[in-house]
Simulated assay, not measured.
Amino acid sequence: MHIAVVNQHHHNPDCPATCRHYTFLAQLALRHRVSLVASDGWRRTRITDTYSWAPTGVELHECPVPYANSMGVVQRLKSFIGFAMAAFRKAMQLQTPDVLWAVSTPLSTAWVVAQVARLRGVPWVFEVQDLWPSFPIQMGAVKNSLLQKRLYRMEKRLYRSASHIITLSPDMTEYVVSLGISPDKITTNYNGTDLALAAAVQPEEMAELRHTYKLQHKKVVLYAGTYGRANDIPTLLQTIEAMAANLSITFVLAGSGYYESQLQALAQRVPNLLLLPPQPRPEIFKWFKLADLSLITFNDLPVLQTNSPAKFYDSLACGTPVIVTNPGWTKRFVEQHGCGWYVPAEQSQALAQGIVQALAQPQELEAAGARGAAISRQLFDRQQLVKEVEAVLEQVVR
């Protein structure tokens, strides 16, 4: 089977990113021909040079289109349009695939794949990583009401056009069904994590980190991810400042993004905040293993309740319980499986209280971590999740 994948946001494990598709494509390339149409925008985020940029066996067709999380709305729009145009040309030049696979976001990637699929007479699969256009609209990036309506109509047409839809959370699936799409056409495939990277972390590596950063006898609360406008970083700032006198707790934040300068200023004022640069994928698992608790924070917006954050899966795989602030499926999940706690979004006092209460129960903290690790092995192993995606692709081709 010849699988053609179109993904503007391709990464490899040298980057500070989830790398879901790197793992998936590495496995699929063992059994199928895989062509990847991607931008080169994330090459500059490589921190190490350990991995090949595309997995062995994957044919890379790269589009020179810049992208960065620091871009504003206009710059991002130019990047999306630029990639759409370049990806259309690349995809039309490929030897005819058996199936096209669109990794969205942005929605423009799915639109391009739908056009190529129609022109070349092949089926296509729509992987929904975030709900667009709901996300940019609710974040205030698309204010024109006429444009909003057009984007929603395009979204619905794309769902209908796709031969199959893959979503990354049950709440995304529920949303797509609410638009009149048959549940039989949708597969929920969790974002998942790389269990082998979690298992590879050695105790001496964690001990070295504790020594290097003077974390002996400290409770470590970790936030690892983007400091973006959707991540409720202002609440995190307020929480850390309010807990500055509690020197038994150290907040470790690893990432970059919009609120980086405010976090750097806070780190100069409080003694228990450690800011780290973005970490390559193998390194971030060491921090998740070391941490006593990790935070998965997002703004209080309906669209963000559906998301499928990589740090949620990575933390649980490392046996580190989580505090989530989404009242959607992640809240239901941690409560059902006893692997974390829920605190309402945008409430710094409640978040501080939740952190203190969780850390005050070391036995329950350890038990919650063990439950999280167990459910990760059962549900979140990307080596198993890719088989489900492979089955979808094969079904569509048949």
Results as ranks from 00 to 15, higher is better:
L237C: 14
Y213F: 13
P282F: 00
A245D: 11
Y259P: 00
F251T: 00
P282E: 00
Y223R: 13
H211Y: 14
H211R: 15
Q268S: 09
D232M: 13
E260I: 03
P234I: 11
L266F: 05
Q268R: 10
L290E: 03
T235I: 01
P234W: 09
A244Q: 13
P277S: 06
N272C: 13
Q264A: 13
F288C: 08
R269P: 03
A267I: 01
H217E: 15
T235W: 09
V221E: 15
L274K: 10
L209I: 12
R229G: 08
I249A: 10
Y213T: 04
Q264E: 14
G228V: 11
A224C: 08
T239S: 08
V270S: 05
Y259T: 03
R269V: 03
F251R: 01
L273S: 06
L266W: 06
D292H: 15
F251S: 01
L293V: 04
Q262E: 05
K289D: 07
L290K: 00
N231Y: 15
H217Y: 09
F251A: 01
V270R: 02
T235M: 10
R229S: 06
L215C: 13
N272F: 13
A244D: 13
P277Q: 07
A254W: 07
A245I: 12
A230S: 12
P277I: 01
I240F: 03
Q268I: 04
F285A: 07
V220H: 04
I240W: 02
A291H: 02
G228F: 03
Q216F: 13
L274S: 12
P280K: 06
I284K: 00
K214L: 12
Q238V: 12
A244M: 10
H211S: 15
F288S: 11
E260A: 02
S261A: 15
L236Y: 04
M243E: 02
D292P: 06
Q216M: 13
K218Y: 09
I284V: 14
G257E: 11
W287S: 05
I240H: 04
F285W: 02
Y227N: 07
S261G: 09
T212V: 09
S256A: 01
K218S: 06
Q279N: 01
Y213W: 15
L247F: 03
A245V: 01
